[in-house]
């Protein structure tokens, strides 16, 4: 899959999720089952750099979601 199509698929899949805005890296692997984990990882991190996605860190683990989506910004007083 070319990169633009993959990015679009990721955004569309995330937009469909209800009640949960942050996901583990592995959840992104499932969206692109034909790609190597390393490729998906690099793409996801690139999308963070492009400000499509953002990280949320529990300190021990990192979750990833669409930028600005979810309840975390409100409850953390960072909106």
């Amino acid at each position: 899959m070319d990169e633009e199509a993959a990015k679009k698929l990721i955004v569309e899949t995330l937009e469909k999720k209800k009640g949960k805005s942050k996901f583990y890296l592995k959840d992104f692997y499932k969206m692109l089952p034909d790609e190597k984990p390393r490729t998906v990882k690099n793409l996801v991190n690139k999308m963070v750099g492009e400000e499509t996605l953002e990280y949320w860190s529990s300190g021990s683990t990192t979750l990833i979601g669409l930028k600005g989506v979810g309840k975390q910004a409100g409850s953390e007083d960072e909106d």
Binding site: N45, V48, G49, E54, Y55, W56, S57, S58, G59, T62, L63, Q72, A73, E76, D77, E78
Partner: peptide, 19 residues
Amino acid sequence: KHGGIVGVFGYGGGVIGRY
């Protein structure tokens, strides 16, 4: 309280949010 959003742009680690 823990905070997970804050960080420096493009990095997934290195910052731990506290309130």
